[in-house]
């Protein structure tokens, strides 16, 4: 019934050239659409119900003479309870359905391809770990979970791909993430969905979903660039980080080898896993996240490292982690 209804609406819309929904191009899009359809059904049912009852009463009980006196009716506890409890039960069903879908959609699979996004007024910088960079374009392979790690260089933006039914705010000063698994090759809209100033409506772009071979060719093509980790390594020596943060430096600071992804006890007593946010904080405000018994001698790099360099440094630290796991055997 629902499908038939949707078919009717879609054909009507096609005739008038009205987009009724975005393309269904990610693994979660269909689930979101089903929930949307159920909600539309509920909305239609109750709207039609209320409108019909009102129209029926309007005609049947219209005032026929000025002096008309209506008969007495009594409030009914049964009715009151019925129209309190039935909507409540429907809300419970909706809550459970939408929340389970949301939880499933919120957590990226462990084996996701990682891509980095920096929002700034008014463009999207995309950086692939392998090195290629893009502006207002995002190339991704089909059928693979892709995780975006995103931050903003200025105000709040929002990364929105309608065809994937995903959206996440991109905030300054922190990393947010979003994931999707494309299920259809093609070109899809990318929008900024959080008002960010004058040219907000031009902070848009395209997502290109490619077959794995096309994607590999795309990554390999273009100008040869260093990977993010390699660029990070250069920054690491450029900023002089290596004079303390290497095993050879004489124990003035923790070595970064194998640090990423491990829980660490901080001097504040708190235990935190070393992730993007913690590395970022350690570089910008080092004294707030001190590990071990090292002297608080590290200067702040606030204002000296931009968001792009930060991501490269983080990629470098990450690469040290994996180096230990493979070489340390």
């Amino acid at each position: 019934m629902m499908g038939f209804f949707q078919f009717g609406i879609n054909s009507l819309a096609a005739l008038m050239d009205i987009p009724m929904q975005p393309p269904v191009a990610s693994s979660i899009a269909e689930g979101v659409d089903q929930l949307y359809l159920l909600l539309t059904g509920i909305t239609l049912f109750f709207s039609v119900l209320i409108f019909s009852i009102i129209f029926y009463f309007m005609i049947k009980y219209r005032r026929r003479s000025e002096g008309e006196v209506p008969p007495e009716t009594h409030s009914s506890l049964f009715l009151e309870l019925a129209w309190t409890i039935i909507p409540s039960l429907m809300c419970v069903v909706l809550f459970v359905w939408s929340s389970s879908l949301y939880i499933r959609n919120a957590r990226p699979p462990a084996a996701s391809t990682e891509i980095f996004v920096i929002g700034k007024q008014w463009m999207w910088h995309i950086q692939h770990p392998e090195g290629p960079r893009e502006i207002n374009e995002l190339h991704v392979p089909i059928g693979v979970p892709v995780k975006l790690t995103m931050t903003s260089q200025d105000v709040i933006h929002d990364f929105y791909i309608p065809a994937f039914r995903v959206k996440k705010d991109v905030l300054p000063g922190r990393y947010s993430s979003l994931w999707f698994q494309p299920t259809q090759t093609g070109t899809f809209h990318l929008f900024c969905a959080q008002y960010c100033g004058t040219n907000h409506s031009e902070m848009i772009g395209w997502v290109y979903v490619m077959t794995p071979t096309d994607y590999a060719a795309w990554l390999a093509g273009g100008e040869k660039t260093e990977s993010m980790a390699q660029q990070g390594e250069r920054l690491f020596s450029q900023f002089g980080c290596g004079s303390c943060h290497t095993p050879e430096a004489g124990g003035r600071a923790p070595s970064l080898v194998g640090l990423y992804g491990k829980p660490q006890k901080l001097q504040s007593g708190e235990t935190r896993v070393v992730d993007e946010a913690l590395i970022r904080q350690a570089i910008l405000v080092p004294n707030t996240v001190r590990i071990g018994n090292f002297e608080p001698i590290m200067p702040t790099y606030q204002g000296q490292i931009d968001e792009e360099q930060m991501l490269q440094l983080i990629a470098y630290v990450k690469s040290l982690g994996s180096a230990e796991r493979t070489n340390g055997q």
């Binding site: 939408s98 929105y160 969905a193």
Partner: peptide
């Protein structure tokens, strides 16, 4: 209700 539902709100928020 579309917006109280988490999964649909993700798509509809800001539109």
């Amino acid at each position: 209700l579309f917006l109280a539902s988490l999964a649909t709100d993700v798509h509809l928020n800001g539109t």
